[in-house]
Write a protein that binds this DNA or RNA. Structure first.
Lengths: 239, 239
DNA sequence: CCAAAAGTGTTGGGTTTACACCCATGC
DNA sequence: GCATGGGTGTAAACCCAACACTTTTGG
């Protein structure tokens, strides 16, 4: 049964198992500072290997669904989440990923808004964790999360992506807080505002946020494209 | 045998076949204008489906090699090429990719220098084609090439990637020609030179190219990082 | 000397950055 | 009124595209 055949063009060597996993990011206020920070949901392994350890939500690719559909379905089943922003991250296929058998994972990443995140079916085996304070996860999932964070920061520098972590309406200061949380540096409110206002896809509404103890900030709405089920990723827009 | 089980956590449903393919780009002088243009090698299908049609080099993932190794090995076997620049492009897993059976392809893309490209083992079943004048290819390989071109242009805008299409030593004018060919627009020689000279990783040698019928341009060398076998992609550098 | 491309200088316009300042609200 | 962020103005610094100009070779 073990494959020692050096014959190149043959394929009867039992294919590696193929799984789909997803890194999901959402904002939650930090317990300490109260400022928004990145969190992600993990599920506890209920079988070997890595039984009992936390891992990215995922599962095998069913026969009759696209990769993206598989990610969506699995997410819904394991966590109750249905992210509007979902994109392919990378295919991981190292030999040493899983103890024992060969495993190839196609990993997606998602951003969810607070209202979406609130629908999570949390349980003994499903919990949210701070992205920057993860314990040791199953498989190579720590590295995968690191890579996803790197991609998130990267995309944030150019792209218009922060809105997908916020709700339907948001203030410009909230967007700035997202940038500050993800990029981990402070930004000048005045200049940041100007930059955002100069980009397309971010429209002012005529509503204002009340209840603060200062001047009520205007609310804005994101009116740009969302990655669809297709292959192509959106072109990076100007900041 | 057909999988109708809606049971989520089971996996005995025969996994999709998993293949690795690669889009390889190299520069060749256009027959008409003589200016450099993008070419890529294709191989002719010698079995069903799409028997006789041209396709990206690729094959099944062998059991005991990483994804990147699989791409390298397959490339060497089918075309004789051993690209120094090789990176993951995307995982394609639509349901309608292959007539009949379910097929997931993890696609890599590569850049080869002229000396590397010259080692191609061309034959009746292996040939170079102009990237912008492709006939109808097997599977969804036309779309994949389009996507790879998009990524190449994209990466060119920021990154320092053009060198990988040139030889060990090159003039700044050659680099500019690569940009012009890939981005399909003219660039100011003076400003382009300044930009390049201000980036790291591109070092002047003390050699000059002779034999032109004008002032001999200085030769430069690329001394920056190359994507290794690891997971992480290089950070986009300043132009 | 001339043509042609290499290579350098300069200038105007746009963009970013730093920071001063006024505005509107809750308390 | 006063504290607090929302929102606007502005000048210096910086970056970049356009283009004039000098340099060095082959013929």
């Amino acid at each position: 049964m073990s494959a020692t055949s050096a014959n190149v063009s043959e394929r009867r060597v039992q294919p590696p198992s193929l799984a789909i996993s997803t890194v999901i990011f959402a904002l939650r206020p930090s317990e300490s500072s109260g400022r928004p920070t990145l969190w992600l949901p993990l599920v506890r392994r209920i079988r070997q290997p890595y039984l009992g350890q936390w891992a990215l939500p995922g599962g095998p690719l069913a026969h009759s669904e696209s990769l993206q559909d598989a990610a969506s379905r699995n997410l819904l089943e394991t966590t109750g989440l249905a992210p509007r922003y979902l994109e392919q991250l990378y295919a991981f296929g190292g030999l040493d990923r899983s103890a024992g058998q060969r495993l190839v994972s196609i990993v997606y990443w998602a951003l969810v808004q607070p209202d979406e995140a609130a629908l999570t079916r949390e349980s003994e085996n499903v919990r949210w964790f701070r992205a920057d304070r993860l314990e040791s996860l199953a498989f190579d999932h720590n590295e995968i999360v690191e890579y996803a964070l790197w991609r998130l920061r990267n995309k944030m520098e150019y792209g218009s992506i922060a809105y997908h972590l916020l709700g339907e309406r948001f203030t410009l200061a909230q967007v700035r807080e997202v940038y500050e949380a993800v990029l981990d540096k402070e930004l000048d409110p005045a200049n940041f505002r100007r930059q955002l206002r100069s980009t397309p896809y971010i429209e002012p509404t005529d509503e204002h946020l009340t209840g603060t103890r200062h001047r009520p900030p205007r609310l804005y709405r994101y009116a740009g494209p969302v990655p669809d089920g297709s292959v192509r990723q959106p072109l990076p827009a100007s900041p």
